[in-house]
């Protein structure tokens, strides 16, 4: 008469874990496939329009007079810092940049031996508020300028709406 628990009940109460093997198999196929397609360092590109190249292959040494400035031209000078040509009207000098009436632009001197890109950004924002500026800007650099500095300046201009980037030869731009 002693109490004996029912075997049926105990078998019903047993835990049946889900069969995870198919998921496991799926994971083992997916993971190696994704590993091959994973990019840890994401790359991006910046489009650049080049000036039409000469056919002689010789370096131009002849100083050309500037044409009427239609676009912004940013000069990265090893000695002087940044010089942005164009759109001087209505812009006043500040402690960060000075108006250069002769060159029809502004001069941003170095700050801590580096190009003062903060001042350049401020200036671009200021002229964007006052004028309807084109989306294009050209860059002219001294030969010793580091690629990184050029890219930083280009990236800054692109961020501030000047998305059409070009390169011009420094000899074709008026500079002392």
């Amino acid at each position: 008469m002693a109490f004996r628990p029912s075997t049926k009940l105990s078998s019903l109460g047993e835990e049946h874990p889900p069969n995870l093997m198919p998921i496991m198999n799926l994971f083992l196929v997916l993971i190696p496939m994704l590993i091959t397609m994973t990019v840890l360092v994401k790359l991006s590109v910046m489009n650049l329009s080049l000036p039409s190249g000469g056919s002689s292959g010789e370096q131009s040494t002849e100083q050309e007079k500037p044409k009427e400035l239609e676009n912004l031209i940013l000069i990265l000078s090893q000695d002087k810092g940044l010089i942005l040509l164009g759109y001087k009207e209505g812009i006043k000098s500040s402690n960060r940049y000075t108006i250069d009436k002769e060159r029809n632009g502004i001069h941003i001197p170095f700050k801590d031996d580096k190009f003062n890109l903060y001042a350049l950004e401020d200036y671009i924002k200021e002229i964007k508020e006052k004028y309807e500026i084109q989306q294009s800007i050209s860059f002219a650099c001294d030969e010793e300028i580091k690629y990184e500095d050029l890219i930083k300046a280009m990236d800054l201009c692109r961020r501030n709406g000047l998305s059409k980037l070009g390169l011009v030869e420094i000899a074709t731009v008026f500079i002392e």
Partner: peptide
């Protein structure tokens, strides 16, 4: 390589 904020794809 230098850095950029550009999102244009390779």
């Amino acid at each position: 390589l230098p850095y950029t904020t550009s999102t244009e794809r390779v």
